[in-house]
Amino acid sequence: MQAEKSTRPRQVWQWADVRRRKLGMWAYTLNRVSGLGLVLYLFIHLAVLRLLAGGPAAWDNFLALVRSPLFLVLDVVLLAGLLIHGLNGIRLTITGLGIGVPAHKTWFLALMAAALILSAAGAIAIFTM
């Protein structure tokens, strides 16, 4: 099998183009965007942990910062991202094994509803604790 001639314009970003696409494509793109977000978070997290090397003072300053409402909102975003990506991952694992494939859209809607509810519950917990 030869590879196709690569005379076509590269359209890699098309994976993120959900215009005129169906729910499956939204799920696909949402999973990628949330995945990239979580990877970004991981690196930020590692950078933040480096503050521990600066001793208790540096860490306390940082903790004061993250208790501000803006950071609490970001916490909710993080939680939502985790839920979306994790629950979607469960759907992909199940359909990927050939189970419930025709119902993949229902799976997606149900799990995303669960993600929404859990994120809301999380938000309440975060802001009231």
């Binding site: 696409r21 169906k22 499956g24 494509m25 799920a27 696909y28 999973n31 992909l92 025709p102």
Partner: peptide
Amino acid sequence: HSAFECTESCPQDVDPGG
């Protein structure tokens, strides 16, 4: 990666995603 756009767009109901 399970976007299922193939199945959605197939004019002959082949269901490649499935």
